[in-house]
Design a protein around this nucleic acid. Structure first.
Lengths: 223, 223
DNA sequence: GCAAATATAATAGTATTACTATCATTAATG
DNA sequence: CATTAATGATAGTAATACTATTATATTTGC
């Protein structure tokens, strides 16, 4: 798996960036350290100036890659969804029983990323924390419809559609497979967040994982 | 119901504001018009200066009520959760069958607010749109643990706890009542958002409501 | 009814943000 | 080796997110 990904480029919609950051050393440093910095100080306090200082580069140079920090966030989230979709396809490939396949799929999309598997400049463990804490902000804006038209959210929509298909494969008569799929995806992130910050309103802790909750939920709903 | 609320003050944690906005004309204008303005231009573009212009008052005067727009958002979300809890308690009061009670509760917390019921300066229909689009931003910050310690999120946690209790009343053996409760609350807002902006990843539309989805889900999980 | 207290308005000022523009320097490529 | 492209340095702008100060209303307490 690691080898496969090393040769495979995760594709992010072109319009999100001005210059493809994966094609240059500076671009790759921008990605690597923006993930670290956003994780450290949060998206609100994150600025291109601070990032420039961290990577020993100039603010103006970073603007040649991304027109704003919002677009950088779109890039990182898009990258993550594409990466997760890749994991999903790879790890369920060839499974014939729909139940097993769905079970595995739920595992993949609800688990906390604990290992940096792809050995690139993008650290998925840290990126996952950004997804939990910041990804909602990528679409909770007034520009969402415009950006959606530009295709900025295709990766997110595609992985949910895949999950939906797996749900319908288990129970073709279930009436709300798409909403269930989107609820699993967003709900898992939310439960991870609650586990870290509001443990009184989640059952998830060190033993009970969001995966256990959603696995139980989905198979009760579909049976 | 309307009469009751007219005499009842929704309580928001004191530390959220500098001066209680409900106690003065200017304060009430701040609340009324901040809701309108945030709904119009979004939280990111919203500033106290613009609000001041809208209400014919001065930026500096608004700062005497709230130390930042983040705290204003905390106020509005807190107010909403307290208001919703009030609806929940009122509308399920005296119901004896746990199943009926839970069914009604799910209806209350998943429905889109369509009528301004309390006749105050706070328009709940518009506020609901703010909750859908902006409320996550109230806790997705680096300061969340600090603010949680200060009690800024008690209203949110309390309503989820109430819902959890109703779930457990229906099925005391269900293993994840708290996570189910928080998933319903947050998930309903998310489905409303998807309905408005990403209809390909939800089943909800004009006919199917988030309520239909969650009602079906919960009673399948608990039976 | 008036003094004192309080609330609001007006103005100014600061540091930072989120950029854009220009020009110099360095590195890559044909 | 000349041209082009990428990066860096510097400067500048409008807006943001405030704080501070002073002036002017308004309320309230006696």
């Amino acid at each position: 798996m690691e080898n496969l990904l090393a040769n495979l480029k995760i594709t992010v919609p072109e319009k999100i960036y001005i210059k493809d950051p994966e094609t240059s050393d500076l671009g790759r440093r921008i990605l690597e350290h923006s993930i670290q910095l956003i994780d450290e100080i949060g998206l609100e306090a994150f600025t291109f100036k601070k990032l420039g200082q961290k990577i020993g580069s100039n603010e103006s140079s970073i603007y040649r890659y991304f027109e704003s920090k919002h677009n950088l966030l779109l890039y990182l989230t898009s990258w993550y969804w594409a990466w997760l979709e890749y994991q999903l396809v790879l790890e369920t490939y060839g499974m014939s029983r729909p139940e097993d396949k769905l079970k595995r799929a739920i595992e993949i999309v609800t688990r906390r990323v604990k290992q940096d598997v792809s050995y690139t400049f993008i650290n998925e463990v840290i990126l996952y924390r950004i997804i939990v804490n910041e990804s909602s902000k990528s679409f909770l804006t007034k520009e969402v419809d415009l950006e959606n038209k530009e295709g900025y959210f295709v990766a997110y929509k595609r992985i949910i559609t895949r999950l939906k298909d797996m749900i319908s494969a288990v129970d073709p008569n279930y009436s709300h497979p798409t909403s269930l799929a989107s609820t699993i995806m967003e709900g898992a992130l939310h439960q991870q967040f609650l586990r870290d910050h509001f443990n009184s309103i989640t059952d998830c802790d060190k033993e009970i994982t969001p995966n256990a909750f959603f696995d139980n939920l989905v198979f009760k709903v579909l049976s």
